[in-house]
Amino acid sequence: MGKGFLTNVFRLYYDGFRNMTLGRTLWIIILVKLFVIFVVLKVFFFPNHIKENSTAGEEDEYVAGEMIKRGIDH
């Protein structure tokens, strides 16, 4: 893979991003959306339930406990 190829790839993205019009608005929307999804929602509202309720390496114990209890106790 020649240096020329890499330069062309770089120029493609560099010029593309620099000359965006509508794309600029869309990128802002994408970045805001990703921030809300990954930083706000994931961190504050969507914890990993099993990790929070079991010790590392014993997740199967927690799941087994939940599933067997629900199956047998009713």
Partner: peptide, 21 residues
């Protein structure tokens, strides 16, 4: 873009037994 990723979050939080199973 990324609207489908929220479904995976829901697996881990609301449907954790299913997600593990």
């Amino acid at each position: 873009v990324a609207t489908g990723i929220i479904l995976e979050f829901e697996f881990g939080t609301n449907w954790s037994n299913y997600s593990w199973f």
